[in-house]
Design a protein around this nucleic acid. Structure first.
Lengths: 204, 204
DNA sequence: CGATACCAAGCAAGCGCTTGGTTTGTAAAT
DNA sequence: ATTTACAAACCAAGCGCTTGCTTGGTATCG
């Protein structure tokens, strides 16, 4: 199952907006603006201009500005949960599964959905407390994927540190790559993945 | 040279405001509010109320709201550069120096100056481009400390991955601890440091 | 014909910051 | 020891602007 097929399945289930639809384009522009300028600095007028409508017309699609932020986050989580599960299912062996997870997360952060992922990481606080809890619950689903793989690698002695701690250290280091890594450079995503595995002592 | 002595030396050099002074208290409250609510969400009225003055009176101490953010960041960098240098100087051997750097950064992020450090990490974009460059230059000074130690560990074969990459991965994982690690819990800062060293394969 | 998507205009509230004047702390002059 | 002088710290009020969002009406299309 490739990335396009995964996306289409999610669209069919109405978990993610079709990229071509008005709602889909709006969310894409929102993700870009929220990442570049931050949620608070982005005005509804900026966002409306980016999609070529009047600011008031936004509220035909979303009840509030916060609902747009939440939708960006929720759809991103749904997409990435599916991508992670596919990555982990395709790889054989726990080292390979971990490598697949790392590469998948790096692709999410630095690839096409990177804008939305960055928003997910850095725009937390702009969500109301209730919305935060909702998003957090969704996120836990794919955290479980990591913990299973890391748990087995820990029991086999290949990873000495505590799985929970390792996952959290990785969350930080992988999402932080958005601030310094640029896919166009001389190091590619695959090499970066290797470097992460190396730094964990999982390649010799 | 302990932490208090370092702080006093910086205050004497006017690189950091005295914690008891009006300016010092203002910056401390600003750091707390900027971390908790974000720079954009924090209003000058919130900040003024937190230090017990009128909002207009803030502008007697700082020309603009942004100048307050910048001051928080600049003073934090000065303080932490000094702390890092002390940590690295006191430790003997490169593994011990790396451990000292990690622990010092974890203390900065999660300890007394944690609020300001979180601001430094997460409130980037709210600074004007010129101010960003200024802050970046100051930060490079202490990045050099890390690269020297990591470079030696790399040449000796103790750290296989590229020093630049390792430093950046560590920047992410260490600053991210602010979102999940709480010093009050059952794992202390020293144990967390051990876990980081473990995850790098630097303890057996 | 009815639903969906949009525009034009603007409201109420909140924003950073300014202004003009008063209090407070300090130190030299009497 | 008291007065004088002056700057630093602060208050009360509010200006001009931007913000998220609302309203009432108009295209567009199956």
């Amino acid at each position: 199952m490739n990335q396009d097929a995964i996306l289409q399945a999610l669209v069919a289930d109405k978990l993610v907006s079709a990229p071509g639809s008005a709602r889909g384009r709006l969310l894409k522009e929102a993700a870009r603006l929220f990442r570049d300028d931050g949620y608070e600095r982005t005005t509804v007028r900026d966002l409306a201009a980016a999609v070529g409508i009047q600011s008031g017309s936004l509220f035909h699609h979303f009840r509030t500005k916060e609902a747009i932020l939440k939708a960006v986050m929720v759809e991103t989580i749904h997409l990435n949960t599916a991508l992670m599960r596919a990555a982990v299912d395709e790889a054989e062996g726990d080292r390979a599964k971990l490598r697949a997870l790392i590469q998948a997360e790096l692709e999410s952060v630095n690839g096409q959905t990177g804008e939305a992922m960055a928003v997910l990481v850095f725009e937390w606080r702009s969500l109301s407390v209730e919305a935060q809890e909702e998003v957090l619950q969704l996120r836990d689903i794919y955290e479980q994927l990591w913990l299973e793989v890391l748990g087995r690698l820990h029991r086999s002695g290949e990873v000495s540190a505590d799985p929970f701690v390792v996952r959290r250290l990785l969350t930080g280091s992988l999402s932080w790559t958005v601030t310094w890594f640029h896919s166009g450079g001389k190091m590619g995503l695959s090499e970066l993945t290797d470097q992460v595995m190396l730094s964990l002592g999982l390649i010799d």
